[in-house]
Amino acid sequence: MHIVDPTSGIASSETVAVAVSEGSRAGALCGLSNSKPGAHDLLEAVGRRLADDHGIGPNGLEAKPSAAVGADPELLDHLAAQYRLAVVAIGD
């Protein structure tokens, strides 16, 4: 039997660009959570321990406005400008 593939379509050419670190920024590491309570708590704890144990800082913590929506591109740009590293949590 010959069928038309129901999954067929035009594949996206979208790729994710990896921004190269450009010199020093004000912050060392930021956490970005999906806004679920567990994700926020986890990032807070990881950031605190990285600062205490390894002197990584200053650290920041941000979240999407809610788990139901994507992160605001302006927030991502802001974090990329302010921090060198990011730890992103997707938890529930």
Binding site: V4, D5, P6, T7, S8, G9, I10, A11, S12, E14
Partner: peptide, 21 residues
């Protein structure tokens, strides 16, 4: 346009195939 989460853009044929199904 492309359909998330997979990011593939459907064609009229693929939509029609699903409509048949």
């Amino acid at each position: 346009g492309p359909l998330p989460p997979r990011g593939v853009t459907p064609t009229l044929r693929s939509i029609a195939a699903n409509a048949v199904m």
